[in-house]
């Protein structure tokens, strides 16, 4: 029970680091820790692979979205048009 608990906790930590790695925010020490954990833990290994794949495909697709400001201006013009139509 106790060991189960600690294992879950270390997996949580590992996945947090793994997420950070995707945004280049993990430190070298954290990365080493992750590496050791991944060597032992199959679930986290799978998650790491999946996570990497997701990042790669997002980079590959070069998805963009509108800036917040652009959206706000668009919203304003649209709501004005809605009001015009209703009146």
């Amino acid at each position: 029970m106790n060991t189960e608990d600690t294992r879950r906790k270390s997996c949580q930590k590992a996945s947090l680091i793994c997420d950070k790695v995707q945004y280049q925010e993990a430190t070298f020490f954290e990365k080493t820790k992750l590496l050791f954990h991944v060597l032992m833990c199959r679930m986290c290994r799978k998650y790491t692979q999946q996570n990497k794949k997701l990042t790669q495909s997002i980079n590959k697709a070069q998805v963009t979205c509108m800036q917040k400001q652009e959206k706000e201006t668009l919203k304003e013009t649209l709501s004005r048009a809605i009001q015009e139509q209703q009146s």
Partner: peptide, 11 residues
């Protein structure tokens, strides 16, 4: 509309 679809449409 803008909240829901603008990103998809923009992309």
């Amino acid at each position: 509309w803008i909240d829901l679809y603008s990103d998809y449409l923009f992309n």
